[in-house]
Amino acid sequence: MILALLSDIHANLEALDACLAHASRHGALRFAFLGDLVGYGADAAPVVERVMEHVSRGAIAVRGNHDDAIARSPRYMNEAALQAIERARDSLTAPQKAFLAGLPLSLREGAMCFVHASAAAPERWEYVDAESAALRSIGAAGTTYTFSGHVHEQWLFTDLGERRAAKHKPAPGTSIPLGRHRRWLALVGSVGQPRDGLPSAAYALFDTEVPALAFHRVAYDHLAAARKIRAAGLPEALAYRVERGV
């Protein structure tokens, strides 16, 4: 079974639809949304609606820090991010807000754990960007596979034992076998706001039977998404990021 792993959509409907279409073409039968459906982008309500539809049909979804911020603005967020949160708060319906508030921080299913940031303390929104943080998250998850987002980059970590981990920069489109005898943590990248200089949306497909993971980059109409951010009167910096992928 092929499972699509999508994280950090950030209210970017164009990017989400492009990834969903790409995933369907590649045989994805199930979807997991790893948090931050909203924030930064212009289309919070349509994105949440799309994800709610998928969840009603059995998709997995966990809560990200931006989803969490809809209920209560946190102090750590910058001005631009807060503006986007306030705008989303105005546009989301009550059931949509309730959906976001009701999402679990992490979810385990069989050999897989889904969490937005670190499984070690999901509510602290720690950035899992180094081997030590990856090992903590893998250890806390206790599962063979941990799938996360939050960092907005694609990385694959492997627990090598004896408190050591390998960190691998995946090549898009390459299927990497993830043997069941090891524990793995994959950061699947950001659908709606990639930050590595490429505007293409990032996500991953996990083939649970092989088992193998393929990271993907999907070109989409990022200029349209940026235009919508400007038209909505959101800060220019947010449009610029989507336009340039920075």
Binding site: T158, L160, R164, A166, H168, P170, A171, T174
Partner: peptide, 11 residues
């Protein structure tokens, strides 16, 4: 291999 995680990188 550039496209595979290097299990020996830390070894």
């Amino acid at each position: 291999h550039a496209r595979c995680p290097d299990l020996l990188a830390e070894e």
